[in-house]
Simulated assay, not measured.
Amino acid sequence: MAKSFKTVPKKRTPSPEQVEAFVSGGAGTDKQDDEPVKRVSIDVRESLHTRFKVACAKTRSKMAPEIIAFIEKRVIELENEAT
């Protein structure tokens, strides 16, 4: 027997914030000035990885941009220490 809907599902329109989050986190948006990209692979304890992933999910941020932001900040700190 076929199911019938009594009401049509509502079309959900994303909020401007959701659209911006999608656009800024979409594929290919991490390229800056077409500079070549290098991949970094590190081993992390499973518990730390899980904590980081959960923290990013709670703030609705992606892991990679958070790691890049940390590296950029730390590089500046290290460069200042060297001078």
Rank of each mutant, 00 (worst) to 15 (best):
K3Y: 14
S4Y: 14
K6I: 11
K6E: 12
V8W: 09
V8Y: 12
P9C: 01
P9G: 01
P9E: 01
K11M: 12
T13R: 10
E17D: 11
E17S: 10
V19F: 04
A21K: 04
F22S: 15
F22Q: 07
V23G: 02
S24Y: 10
G25V: 01
G25T: 00
G26W: 08
G26H: 11
A27I: 07
G28I: 00
T29N: 03
D30E: 11
D30F: 10
Q32W: 14
Q32N: 09
Q32Y: 13
V40Q: 08
S41K: 07
S41V: 03
I42C: 08
V44T: 01
H49Y: 08
R51A: 12
C56P: 07
A57Q: 08
K58L: 09
R60D: 05
K62R: 13
A64P: 05
P65M: 05
E66I: 09
E66A: 09
I67H: 01
I68P: 05
A69D: 10
F70W: 10
I71S: 00
E72W: 10
E72G: 09
R74E: 08
R74L: 04
R74A: 04
V75Y: 05
I76D: 15
E77W: 07
L78A: 02
E79S: 09
N80Y: 06
E81T: 07
A82W: 04
